[in-house]
Amino acid sequence: MTSPSTPKTPSVPTGQPRVSIKGASKSFGDSVVLNGIDLDVEVGEVAVLIGPSGAGKSTLLRCINGLERLTAGSVEIDGVRLQYREAALNRMREHVGMVFQSFNLFPHLTAIENVMMAQMSVSKRSSADARERASALLARVGLEDKTESYPSALSGGQQQRVAIARALAMSPKLMLFDEPTSALDPELVGEVLQVMRELADDGMTMVVVTHEMRFARQVADRVILLADGGIVEEGAPEKVLDNPESDRAKAFLRQIESGG
């Protein structure tokens, strides 16, 4: 996979993590969802978040790009602390792509218009430049023949690939994936994972929430098991998935092996 714009990172002081989460806590009313999470994600690292339903995986991801506001603690991206003022949020989000379980493509726009929109609205590119870049990105995710289709005419796997291209159009330095294949028919999962795998090979920094254990084993640099609002186990995929230390981790892994 070559052009367009292999998302190579701008110069960052070496050793500084791309994402640095310190003492992150999040409550909704009385219910504590995240309880003092500390987590660094290095430049170029692929971190896979796993854990039981309700563990707070989505919430953690959404706190990284400010869709949810932390109750306590902090998130830094390339050393810049996340602030919740609109202008600061917008500036940060330009460089942080997010892919959702339910795709969330804009249904009133064609595939290529979906990929062009933020380029024009946020990056102020001309329509011609945005179109050129969008069509290259759609080709990159294997959808060169679907550029003029509306989302309603695309399969789930195709929609999710458009959504990935849409995020990549902003040249993000970090990509967040929240169960990107959970809403897909089994036969469509592979094409989306393949695109993500290529992205990882290109050096993209990624935080991925997924139940795809094969993907975690093959692509993750680190697997993080979240349960009850905290990190219960983290490390290389083989270590976490095959030789977990905590009972909580063992129980979770037994459960997904038996249940899928």
Partner: peptide, 25 residues
């Protein structure tokens, strides 16, 4: 609400999200 989240996640402002994403739908 996923439409607004997708738009805001791309760095689009509240106003741009309203005009380009929410209003047309």
């Amino acid at each position: 609400s996923g439409q607004v989240e997708a738009s805001r996640s791309l760095g689009m402002s509240r106003a741009a999200t309203m005009i380009r994403v929410v209003a047309p739908q």
